[in-house]
Amino acid sequence: MQIQSTVAVLPNDNIDTDQIIPARFLKTISKEGLGDQLFFDWRYNADGSPKADFVLNTPAAKASKVLLAGDNFGCGSSREHAPWALTQYGLQAVLSTSFADIFKQNSLKNRLLPIVMPKDAHAALFVALEKDPALQVTIDLPAQTLSWPGGPTVEFPIDAFAKDCLLEGVDEIGYVLKQDAAIAAFEAQRSISLNTLA
């Protein structure tokens, strides 16, 4: 999995999932149609027209597969609608210095790479993009590297199992379903008794 792309920049810290997709859009029973609602309250005016100066409304951002954001991206609610909306918009990776735990899990399950950068490289990329907004970054998942022309090659961490799942297309639910015997053995010796059907 290699991604080469320009970068949309959203320099806020602590972007929470209520911003990524506001709660009123969670009444849906489907996963589809969320791309247009991504960052809705930052993206549209009260009359529903797009705010021309908001980054995700620019043609350049629309063509980008990578989003660069401030620290602690994806905090707050556990809604998986957040990575659904981000990927439906066309994003394949988010770059930050850290991600909230649940968001990170949800992203990996939806082929959205949460890339944790060291602080200095993160700051350097902001500077590089300010100089050249058309700069392209390259993300190499097998090598776990992120690089850009004139910049460092940054190694990023990723859970080894999640990486294998992404690269080999492993279905995690299928993987656990196959461990039926181990689950049954565990169930047979459990001591906690609860029966919600009682």
């Binding site: 998986e80 899990q105 949800n106 859970d159 995690e172 639910i173 379903l177 689950i183």
Partner: peptide, 23 residues
């Protein structure tokens, strides 16, 4: 006790288990 995403909800419904690393 912790929150999970919808893919994980599906996993727990199907298997009563989660794939987790210790915190």
């Amino acid at each position: 006790a912790f929150g999970i995403g919808t893919s994980e909800v599906e996993m727990v419904l199907a298997t009563q288990c989660l794939l987790q690393r210790p915190s």
